[in-house]
């Protein structure tokens, strides 16, 4: 019962707003704002009208959407590995942080889309350039949160680890990493949405295929319903990534006080 009530509460307002949008767009009849009842069928038409042998998915999905999603996830994963590994090491080194603080603050302050032209010049047109842009943008939240998390390990744990003569890997993997995980997950969720943004931006600017490219193409053809279909898709992707990561986080961090309760009442 509780689950159903929660579900209704979470989605009622959303459905209501979509309905209002439907009414308003129909009344205004603006060519730039097609009603949801046109966007929905256009989405089916664009992506879900393929042959049964290809799981009803269209060529657009295989040629443009899946590669884009794959690049986003790959770039994000590379950023996660670099960010967590480097972050934990830097976070435990006061000396390294003294030298690198300014550099990190500077790097993080650069709006990542500005790096797209740079990667375009250095890596040329194609997947490596897009990956470069995604990694550069997505690495900062993970890196900075990992550093913070590693620094938050208290002095008693440092003493305890030393008193038990833990090895370097045991200390890093068994104490620093788990202690930093709550912060790391916050960083990971932030960075997946940044990865999504950079995937689109890099494909908008310079690409012959991909989700961003299709979005631009629809706009060029005055296919407003198609354009909105891609915008909605981006929203769905961002939402799905976040939900999936939250689920992983709840599993991995179930040791945290209050987590079990929070999970039970959802």
């Amino acid at each position: 019962m509780r689950g159903i009530t929660g579900f209704v509460q979470r989605w009622a307002l959303f459905v209501l707003i979509v309905l209002i949008w439907e009414v308003v767009t129909r009344l205004s009849a603006s060519p730039f704002f097609p009603p949801p009842s046109q966007i929905g069928p256009r989405m089916v038409d664009l992506w879900l009208s393929g042959p049964a042998s290809r799981l009803f998915l269209t060529d657009t999905v295989y040629d443009h959407l899946l590669p884009s999603v794959g690049r986003t996830l790959l770039g994000w994963a590379i950023a996660a590995v670099i960010g967590i590994g480097l972050g934990l090491l830097l976070g435990r080194s006061t000396v390294a942080m003294r030298y690198l603080r300014v550099l990190l603050d500077f790097g993080r302050a650069i709006p990542p889309p500005l790096m797209v032209p740079f990667f375009l010049v250095t890596l040329g047109l194609g997947a490596p350039m897009q990956l470069g842009a995604i990694v550069f943008g997505a690495v900062w939240p993970v890196l900075l949160n990992s550093i913070d998390g590693a620094r938050s390990v208290d002095a008693t744990k440092v003493d305890t680890a030393r008193a038990f003569r833990l090895s370097g890997p045991q200390w890093m993997g068994g104490v620093v990493l788990p202690a930093a995980l709550p912060k790391i997950f916050a960083g990971l969720r932030l960075s997946i949405s940044i990865a999504l943004i950079l995937m689109v931006v890099s494909e908008l600017v310079a690409s012959t295929h991909g989700l961003g490219n299709q979005l631009v193409a629809a706009g060029r053809d005055y296919d407003m319903a198609g354009m909105w279909a891609y915008i909605v898709l981006l929203g769905i992707l961002g939402y799905a990534f976040n939900i999936a990561l939250l689920a992983v986080e709840h599993r991995v961090l179930r040791w945290q006080p209050g987590r079990a309760h929070a999970a039970a009442s959802r």
Partner: peptide, 21 residues
């Protein structure tokens, strides 16, 4: 350095234990 056959119990048990284990 810390000898192998020595153990320490600290006052602050809540910080000394690993909450994730």
């Amino acid at each position: 350095g810390v000898p192998a056959d020595l153990a320490v119990v600290f006052q602050d048990y809540s910080r000394s234990l690993f909450p994730w284990l």
